[in-house]
């Protein structure tokens, strides 16, 4: 079981307290109706799925309950860093 550093609690906590929440930094468009089908498709379905450094969201659902962002290596499954929601991509 992995350990994850929660940027709100500022503690390493057991992975069982967390829930994965998909790729990070995919903001919901301010006016979805203005988007073409292709643009909406990109927002809805297209994900980076990289081999290596992945920006992703987690939620400390059984802790402080906050969503936050993380950079995790999808090969080694190691967390490089975590940061608060709303902070720029790192």
């Amino acid at each position: 079981m992995i350990l994850i550093h929660c940027p709100y609690c500022d503690e390493q906590r057991p992975g069982l307290e967390f829930a994965y929440a998909g790729e990070a930094h995919i903001a919901r468009p301010a006016d979805p109706s203005a988007l073409s089908d292709e643009e909406w498709e990109r927002f809805l379905f297209i994900r980076a799925n990289p081999r290596g450094r992945h920006h992703e969201r987690w939620r400390h659902i059984h802790g402080c309950a906050r969503f936050f962002n993380a950079v995790r290596d999808t090969v080694s499954d190691k967390f490089e860093l975590t940061y608060k929601a709303g902070e720029p991509r790192k």
Binding site: M1, C9, R13, P14, L16, E17, H62, G63, C64, A65
Partner: peptide, 17 residues
Amino acid sequence: CPRDVERLPFPYASRTV
């Protein structure tokens, strides 16, 4: 509980599993 219960400070409270 997967927390390090023995070493928790007190008073202290947190959600966990």
